[in-house]
Write a protein that binds this DNA or RNA. Structure first.
Length: 890
RNA sequence: GGGCGGCUAGCUCAGUUGGUCAGAGCACCUGGUUUACACCCAGGGGGUCGGGGGUUCGAGCCCCUCGCCGCCCACCA
């Protein structure tokens, strides 16, 4: 016997181990099976599972389990990302906490060794947490972005792109993070609005004839000014172009140049130009061949290019000092408060400096073109489709991608420098040495580039590097391109676009056919979850509290294609209850010996109830299949919820009770077998979403009786997905059950409305019904008696005095309960019902009276409307008759 | 400045190509020891579908416009 309740805590670990041990997570080796692959968005090794991961991975698991059951060679390839900056930061912090040593004290090799140590110890956390979600990844194929194979892929890609001149070295302004002392890409910069000032600074003209005023939010950059620009058409400054100003504090003479970049509408119309510290000024500087004066060191302290008094000062200290100096010189012309956008490092949180350095760049523009085309042509489809616009927008305006990072944790750039500065790029040091020998005629010392690659460079190769590339592996052949990528919109640029570029360039085919963009989870108030707000929901804590299935079902049901999911515990509790409901339904089946029958053919059942539930099951199976094929996860979950609770439990099991408790042995046997069959189908359909409870019931129900499961169906995880014929939908059974459900539903409603005591057991009187309807009522008297809680069904020409009358499918029914009810209340009720129907009749008649409607609307709509009118009129007439009798009797 | 979402019952949201589409869950109210289930059963109240205009025989659903709310990108000396 099944236990009274489902106990996730003991079942989940047991079943997960059982699945894994059975090899169910690996793709079938059946060579005829169609491949279906998903690569996991590799979580950072530093991470721990948050609710966003829970959603993202649940959806992937739903897809994989679904396709696995459909007989495909389903591969969900797991792994983790080395997460350059994030991991380096974690280990540096740990070092600092332990013994106050910095990474520079340790030296590069020792530090990197420390990070690997940390990875060995803590890097498995998130992966183990994924198991607790029930994720059916093929762990035998787990990869890490820094493992040997993936590192080889990275080197090969770098070298090839370099040889194709799609990777190059360039000196230009980068986004510099002074906290980490590294360059970062545009995407790693967050613009934040902060309070600031405009300082209006006066620069005296060289000839003493006056001054020119410029405004700036970063006064310290004036130490690196190379010019003042004015618009060529600006009358105010026409005479000044070509003259020099003497830069205060610094004393340097700088020219006044005419450039369109200066906007006469802004400030004074004159703008200071600092080519080495501002992206726009850099361009202006190039046009006018201005010197690029870098005044900051990597820590954003003022360097030796500035006057002595400023050297070594932090940029913000220098800012203050520059302003003070201008004030002292009498050259400060004003200060305005302002709120403006300032770039910040997304990891460090500090203000980013545009900084002039040599870095490695990818020619993203060239790589982007095929990536754009592939989506335009539908080789890869975004779901929802709208995100394609975002994707296009970014790729069409893409800038060179800065891929070098001045960090130690990551893929070291495979470039070496000779004594003459010549750059050697090759996959191995051996090749480099050979090339150097050839160039110099002897062995010369070579220095490898100190930098590592942007983490996203290796992530961009993930869909093929994980499958073994650059080796020509059978996995690569079989599983590339992958089928669906499930990810969040926040990394469309960082990751999706880069995989598209790299996949197309190196495999000539898109890396995935479909990209499903999942929503972002927020708390119940719609706030983004964050540690500082304290509104973080820990998925593992939720799993502990409600069970994994409850969390998974909740996330699936709420994964509609909107942008946000507002998650609340209450919601999860509701879906936990759903699991309990299913569990109890299974217990009911077991108690009533609803066991599977060898060779049972659902297509051959004769009982109306069984033909009906068979059809409902077929409809549900088709809806769930359609929904999962379309990534409409919420539709699948909702269809199952409704079917299981509101159809199977509320009606089928209730209507089955009289049969199961009756003495028609043939009907009983058929109903038991049918019910067992429906339960089996339910477990299958539900398994991708709630794998644990369904597998547990599947296993337990087999244990407790019935013939052995079919071959290959010993475990639900690898059982066959139901593919049921639509011909099993039986419209006659539907209308019969519809009549019963309608009569019972309406009967319950009127009983409750008129406060008939629950203990009362009147008969249901069928007053006026067609011959078929009478037959149905006759045949289902027992069922009606138990569900409507009446003594039985009787057929009479007229309702007894004082009976409650109601109309179902055109049939007049009555409940003789005069002794319990207030007749005036019944009169009022009838009058109200008549009123409602009268309004409906009037509205519908008016519509039909409109010649335009009859002439222009589709024929079937007009016909439908006519039928509706006829039905409403008939029902109204019957209730009016009932009302008249009631009044007349008084 | 450009783009994308959203605004439907107290709350969270469904509403496929315009024609019972005004729905669900939760919350609330009223009943209930019906031998699967109180994590349950039965019943019930509640919304002029953000405002305005238009197209149409007919509009949450299409068009225009306005208003909020949110996000992304770019930029502001």
């Amino acid at each position: 016997m099944l236990e009274k309740t489902f106990d996730p805590k003991t079942v989940e670990p047991r079943l997960y181990a059982q699945w894994e041990a059975s090899g169910a997570f690996a793709p079938t080796d059946d060579p005829n099976a169609e491949p279906f692959s998903i690569v996991i968005p590799p979580p950072n090794v530093t991470g721990s599972l948050h609710i966003g991961h829970a959603l993202n991975n649940t959806l992937q698991d739903v897809l994989i389990r679904f396709e696995r059951m459909r007989g495909k060679a389903a591969l969900w390839l797991p792994g983790t990302d080395h997460a350059g900056i994030a991991t380096q930061m974690v280990v540096e912090r740990q070092l600092a906490a332990e013994g106050n040593v910095g990474r520079r004290d340790l030296g590069r090799d020792e530090f990197v060794a420390k990070v690997w140590e940390w990875k060995a110890k803590s890097g498995g956390t998130i992966v183990n947490q994924l198991r607790r979600l029930g994720a059916s990844c093929d762990w035998s194929r787990e990869r890490f972005t820094l493992d040997d194979g993936l590192s080889a892929a990275v080197r090969k890609v770098f070298v090839q792109l370099y040889r194709e001149q799609l990777i190059y070295r360039d000196k230009r302004l980068v986004n510099w993070d002074p906290f980490f002392q590294t360059a970062i890409s545009d995407l790693e910069v967050e613009q934040k609005e902060v309070d600031g000032h405009y300082w209006h600074l006066a620069y005296p003209l060289e000839d003493g004839s006056g001054e020119i005023v410029v405004a700036t939010t970063r006064p310290e950059t004036m130490l690196g000014d190379a010019a003042v620009a004015v618009h060529p058409d600006d009358e105010r400054y026409r005479g000044l172009v070509g003259k020099n100003v003497r830069l205060p504090i610094v004393g340097r003479l700088i020219p006044i140049v005419a450039d369109d970049y200066a906007d006469p509408e802004k400030g004074s119309g004159a703008v200071k130009i600092t080519p080495a510290h501002d992206f726009n000024d850099f361009q202006v500087g190039k046009r006018h061949k201005l010197p690029q004066i870098n005044i900051l060191d990597p820590f954003a302290r003022v360097n030796e290019n500035a006057p002595e008094a400023y050297r070594g000062l932090d940029r913000f200290v220098a800012r203050k000092k520059v302003v003070e100096a201008f004030e002292a010189l009498g050259l400060l012309r004003g200060i305005e408060k302002t709120r403006h956008m300032v770039p910040h490092g997304d990891r460090s949180g500090v203000v980013i400096e545009p900084y002039l350095t040599d870095q490695w760049y990818v020619d993203a523009h060239t790589l982007a073109q095929p990536a754009i085309k592939a989506v335009e042509e539908g080789d890869t489809v975004f779901e929802p489709r709208n995100w394609e616009k975002t994707y296009f927008e970014w790729l069409r305006n893409i800038e060179p991608w800065c891929i070098s990072r001045q960090l130690w944790w990551g893929h070291r750039i495979p470039a070496w420098y000779g004594p003459d500065g010549h750059i050697f790029v090759a996959e191995s040091e051996g090749e480099v040495k050979a090339a150097a020998r050839e160039r110099y005629g002897r062995d010369e010392p070579l220095a490898q580039d100190e930098d590592v690659l942007d983490t996203w460079f290796s992530s961009g190769l993930w869909p093929f590097s994980t499958l073994g590339w650059p080796e020509e592996t059978s996995d690569l052949k079989r599983f590339y391109p992958t089928h669906t990528l499930v990810t969040g919109f926040d990394i469309i640029f960082f990751w999706v676009a880069r995989m598209m570029m790299m996949g197309l360039h190196f495999q000539d085919r898109v890396p995935f056919k479909r990209v499903f963009i999942n929503a972002l989870i927020r708390d119940e108030k719609g706030q983004k979850m964050s540690k500082s707000k304290g509104n973080v929901m820990d998925p593992l804590e939720l799993v502990d509290a409600y069970g994994c299935d409850a969390l998974r079902f909740t996330l699936t049901a709420m994964s509609g294609q909107a942008r946000d999911i507002k998650l609340s515990r209450q919601r999860i509790e509701g879906y936990r209850n759903f699991g309990t409901k299913l569990w109890n339904a299974a217990r009911f089946c077991q108690m009533n010996e609803c066991l599977r029958v060898e060779g049972f053919d659902p297509g051959a059942v004769g009982q109306t109830l069984n033909r009906w539930i068979r059809g409902e099951t077929v409809k549900t199976a088709h809806e769930v299949t359609r929904a999962l094929e379309a990534c409409a996860f919420d539709d699948a979950a909702n269809a199952l919820y409704r079917f299981i609770w509101n159809v199977f439990c509320d009606w089928h099991l209730e209507l089955a009770k009289p049969i199961l408790n009756g003495d028609d042995e043939a009907a009983k046997a058929e109903t038991r077998a049918t019910t067992a069959w429906v339960l089996d189908v339910i477990l299958k359909l539900l398994h991708p979403v709630t794998p644990f409870i369904t597998e547990e019931l599947w296993d337990k129900l087999a244990e407790f009786g019935g013939p052995p499961r079919a071959a290959g169906e010993a475990q639900l995880i690898t059982a066959r997905w139901p593919d049921l014929p639509l011909a099993w939908i039986d419209v006659d059974a539907e209308s019969e059950i519809g009549l019963i459900v309608g009569a019972v539903g309406e009967g319950r409603s009127v009983r409750s409305e008129l406060n008939v005591p629950p203990s009362a057991r009147p008969h249901l009187i069928v007053v006026d019904a067609s011959a078929e309807q009478q037959a149905i009522f006759q045949a289902n008297a027992a069922v009606i008696a138990s569900t409507l809680r009446v003594g039985g069904v009787r057929f009479e020409a007229a309702a007894p005095h004082g009976a409650i009358a109601f109309v179902v499918d055109g049939a007049t029914l009555a409940l003789p309960v005069a002794e319990f009810i207030d007749l005036s209340a019944e009169k009022a009720r009838l009058a109200k019902e008549v009123g409602v129907l009268a309004a409906d009749v009037e509205r519908t008649a008016k519509k039909l009276g409109n010649p335009d409607f009859v002439a222009r609307a589709k024929e079937e709509v007009v016909e439908e409307t006519r039928e509706r009118l006829a039905e409403a009129e008939a029902a109204k007439a019957k209730l009016e008759a009932a009302l008249r009798r009631l009044v007349a009797a008084d």
